[in-house]
């Protein structure tokens, strides 16, 4: 039972992570893929933050009369990672917009078909 409570946070993280993973590999819609990446990303954040927690500790802001603080280092890493994450997400979304422009669809299986057609057409014109 103790093992269950002690490791429950990791299991939640893994469940979330696998959902994100599934979205990335199984969905054909590019926006859904990006959403899946976000889910995955947040699960990693939760993992880091849960590592930094100390039982009985408090937020790492120095105050008189408090001895135990949670570990500040993961907080710093994740803090910056969140902002970087949203910036890279924006980049991914911009790429999606360009793909929509070029292929008029954002389903990657359709894009693959279109691309194959393009290649065959090129080969046809060359030979």
């Amino acid at each position: 039972m103790e093992t269950f409570y002690g490791l429950f946070n990791y299991w939640i993280v893994i469940v979330l992570m696998m959902m994100g993973f599934y979205m990335v590999i199984a969905q054909h819609n590019l926006i859904k893929k990006i959403i899946g990446l976000n889910v995955f990303q947040v699960s990693v954040f939760v993992f880091y933050i849960s590592m930094s927690k100390i039982k009985g500790g408090t937020a790492p802001i120095l105050t008189d009369g408090i001895e135990i603080y949670s570990n500040p280092l993961p907080h710093v890493l994740i803090l910056t990672a969140i902002v970087v994450g949203v910036a890279t997400t924006a980049l991914g979304l911009a790429l999606t917009v360009r793909i929509k422009d070029a292929f008029d669809t954002i389903e990657d299986d359709e894009i693959a078909i279109l691309e194959k057609e393009d290649q065959e057409r090129e080969r046809g014109t060359i030979s």
Binding site: I31, I49, I78, L79, I82, V83, L93
Partner: peptide
Amino acid sequence: YVVMDAVDVAFTEAAVGAGISTVLMLGT
């Protein structure tokens, strides 16, 4: 994150995740 003592991180996540990224996604 607040439950796990990471107030700074929670702050950022609330502002970024629930605010900015939603707007960007809707734009896309």
